[in-house]
Design a protein around this nucleic acid. Structure first.
Lengths: 224, 224
DNA sequence: TAATAACATGAACAATTGTTCTGTGTCAAG
DNA sequence: CTTGACACAGAACAATTGTTCATGTTATTA
């Protein structure tokens, strides 16, 4: 029997082995053994599998812990980081107060939750400190936030200049998302949409900051 | 030597073993062996580790693939779903064509990538079929997409009514994100922002659909 | 107090699994 | 044609690793 030799890149067998390792890991939650790889890829000899594994390691496609049973993993593909669960506490809409987590808050209060990749989060903080709200209606449109969007927030009472915050305006009886700036005579609440004008507030006008916006996620439903 | 016996729940050793397995798995990407567990938890005998492992399995804290080296995993901890990597192919901005994946596309073309939780994706399709673009400038503001946002797209040439698509308008020499609708005499490109007016196109006017928008992610930087 | 179950140890054993060595056939370059 | 790199097979070997057993200790309970 003879095999076609590829001059460059991964051969058919390299790819097959690579795919199998990933699939096996995904399914069994632990890496396959050399013999299992051989069996599934039609390789009768463990030495041949080891032969290919060596090449895949040299080319950087996998990593190996020699001498350790099933001590191999695919690199590049699975440096997939961690993710954490952020509870969706409720909806946010103009004219209604924002639901915020209580001190004795636990995850079971949440109607549902969204999973966020840690790599997307700007800070290293734990997921427990965040919560999310689903935006209802178009009232947040000046914050470039649409109906159905998920806003992930970090609960806090005070904000620094430039933070996007969720605020409750008791005077106007209104909830809104704005960029926060401290001015000499009060506060400026700047919409994210540059075509819209800011809200200026005097020092004595009441504002309740509920949290800083950390991320906005918009899922676009596809009808296909 | 004597040990304090807990009447209910996990004993100190159970917890220690459980923690170690998780930590080891996270660090090495593969489960530990019985002897490694024993060593780290101050247990000299493999049978004792096996003893505790049996209990942890009975109480549902771990799963075991007997007879398979390092065939154990903690349950409950990883009900967190999967995620996949979407390559960020480039930037999208008005006045420039959209970079789209070629047929021989591979991940290394991407400058970087973002990780998305599968649970956030509307379809079950594989991650390979998606790509992402970073929005530059405020030209997409009428699609409720801001400077710096990440748009995740599915490459396609045709769109159905209601899809949000990335289109290239050769006439105007412009790239834009709009909702797509087919009308009797041509196409209507509807901005997501309801305060803005749609673009009407005759049948003979050229449009190039580059892909459907699946998700928009906005990372808000926090200065704290 | 005796019995019993839970807790603990160490060693021997057997299965799993990675490593290595010898050998075969193909293909391309000298 | 010879040489050598490459792809592959098979088998023997050694290390890793899970299982079992025989035995001892501690706490609870009858």
């Amino acid at each position: 029997m003879m095999m076609v030799r590829k001059s460059k890149g991964l051969g058919e067998r390299h790819q097959k082995i690579l795919d199998f390792i990933q699939e096996y890991q995904r399914k069994h939650k632990h890496p396959p053994s050399i013999r299992e790889i051989g069996e599934s890829c039609g390789i009768s000899s463990t030495s041949v599998v080891n032969y290919y594994l060596d090449q895949l390691e040299k080319t950087g496609h996998i990593e190996r812990d020699r001498k350790i049973s099933r001590g191999l993993r695919v690199t590049g593909q699975s440096p997939i980081g961690e993710m954490f669960r952020v509870p969706v506490l409720g909806r946010i809409q103009a004219g209604e107060p924002i639901p915020v987590p209580a001190s004795d808050f636990n995850y079971f209060d949440a109607e549902e939750s969204v999973e966020i990749a840690s790599s997307l989060m700007p800070s290293r903080e734990k997921g427990k400190q965040f919560f999310a709200l689903e935006v209802q209606g178009n009232s947040m449109i000046d914050a470039m936030v649409n109906d159905g969007d998920i806003v992930v927030m970090k609960p806090t009472q005070d904000a620094k200049n430039g933070d996007m915050v969720a605020v409750w305006l008791p005077d106007k009886n209104e909830t809104t998302l704005k960029y926060f700036y401290k001015e000499k005579d009060g506060f400026r609440l700047q919409p994210a949409n540059p075509t819209m004008k800011p809200i200026m507030l005097k020092k004595d006008e009441p504002v309740e900051i509920k949290g800083k916006v950390v991320m906005v996620i918009r899922k676009v439903e596809m009808m296909s």
